Simulated scan of single mutants.
Amino acid sequence: MHDEAQRAFDTALTRDLDGLVAEGPPAARATAVARGWDLPADAVGALTRWGVPVLPAGPSGISTLAGDVQTEPEPQLMARGITAYRLASYFGRPIGALPGSGAVYGLPEEEHFPVVLINTSVPAFVEIAWRLHFTTQALIPLDEAEEYEQLEGNLQRFCDWIHELDPGCKPPGAASWWDGIAGSW
């Protein structure tokens, strides 16, 4: 067992979000214009206070999760008849929040990729995105040390934590978007 990595992982799941964000990568945050968006107040608050992390680019030169919170007053994403406020991208594919509900969807432009629910709320998406960065950093030493049982247990624990935070992001009998992210480790 890799004790140091385990402590880092546990901290990433339990530390207050303000403390994590203060030590994290740069973030894309909402500007004052977001107060006029058709999103719940807690959504605008999460985007203003913490924003969405802009994670470092991988070997491909593309960031896995890149915060890109729009600064315009009207929704800027339009894909397959869905309009959304731009929040981020995942491997270059847009992620946005639906006006009204604030549900967060992956809205790829390519027809062969489905439109997918990521989270039922912006605050859940913001918190998970930040914790994803820190849990990933904690899990790298486990992968390098070939501590696969501990690694897989922590990946499952992260997914369980996500589904507890946002039960609606996991369709009955199916995997959530986040399960796919963890499964691609």
Results as ranks from 00 to 15, higher is better:
21 V>C: 05
21 V>S: 02
21 V>M: 06
22 A>V: 07
22 A>L: 11
24 G>R: 09
25 P>E: 12
25 P>F: 11
25 P>Y: 09
25 P>K: 06
25 P>H: 12
26 P>N: 06
27 A>G: 02
27 A>E: 03
28 A>Y: 01
29 R>D: 04
30 A>G: 10
30 A>Y: 06
30 A>C: 02
31 T>A: 14
31 T>G: 15
31 T>S: 15
32 A>W: 07
33 V>Y: 00
33 V>K: 00
34 A>P: 09
34 A>K: 03
34 A>G: 05
35 R>L: 12
35 R>V: 00
35 R>W: 02
36 G>D: 13
36 G>A: 11
38 D>L: 10
39 L>Y: 02
39 L>Q: 02
40 P>Q: 08
40 P>M: 08
40 P>G: 10
41 A>P: 05
41 A>Q: 12
42 D>C: 11
42 D>S: 14
42 D>A: 15
43 A>K: 11
43 A>F: 01
43 A>V: 08
44 V>E: 01
45 G>N: 12
45 G>D: 15
46 A>W: 05
46 A>E: 05
47 L>G: 09
47 L>D: 08
48 T>Q: 12
49 R>S: 02
50 W>L: 10
50 W>G: 05
51 G>R: 09
53 P>E: 10
53 P>S: 06
54 V>L: 04
54 V>K: 11
54 V>Y: 00
55 L>S: 01
55 L>N: 06
56 P>Q: 04
56 P>W: 03
57 A>I: 09
57 A>N: 00
58 G>P: 05
58 G>L: 14
59 P>V: 08
59 P>T: 08
59 P>A: 14
60 S>T: 15
60 S>V: 08
60 S>L: 10
62 I>G: 00
62 I>V: 15
62 I>M: 10
63 S>R: 13
64 T>Q: 12
64 T>S: 11
66 A>P: 02
67 G>Q: 10
67 G>I: 06
67 G>A: 06
68 D>P: 04
68 D>M: 11
68 D>S: 13
69 V>D: 12
69 V>E: 13
69 V>L: 12
70 Q>G: 13
71 T>V: 14
71 T>D: 14
71 T>C: 04
71 T>K: 11
72 E>F: 02
72 E>A: 13
72 E>G: 07
73 P>M: 06
73 P>Q: 01
74 E>D: 14
74 E>A: 13
75 P>L: 08
76 Q>M: 13
76 Q>S: 15
77 L>E: 05
77 L>K: 03
77 L>W: 07
77 L>T: 03
78 M>A: 14
78 M>F: 12
78 M>T: 14
79 A>G: 03
79 A>S: 14
80 R>L: 03
80 R>K: 09
81 G>A: 02
81 G>Y: 03
81 G>W: 02
82 I>T: 14
82 I>R: 15
83 T>H: 07
83 T>C: 11
83 T>D: 11
83 T>G: 08
83 T>Q: 14
83 T>N: 08
84 A>H: 07
85 Y>R: 12
85 Y>C: 08
85 Y>G: 04
85 Y>V: 01
86 R>G: 10
87 L>P: 04
87 L>G: 09
89 S>D: 13
90 Y>N: 05
90 Y>H: 11
91 F>V: 15
91 F>E: 13
91 F>R: 10
92 G>E: 09
93 R>E: 15
93 R>V: 03
94 P>V: 10
95 I>W: 00
95 I>P: 00
96 G>L: 10
96 G>S: 05
97 A>C: 09
99 P>W: 00
99 P>I: 07
99 P>D: 02
100 G>P: 01
100 G>E: 00
100 G>S: 04
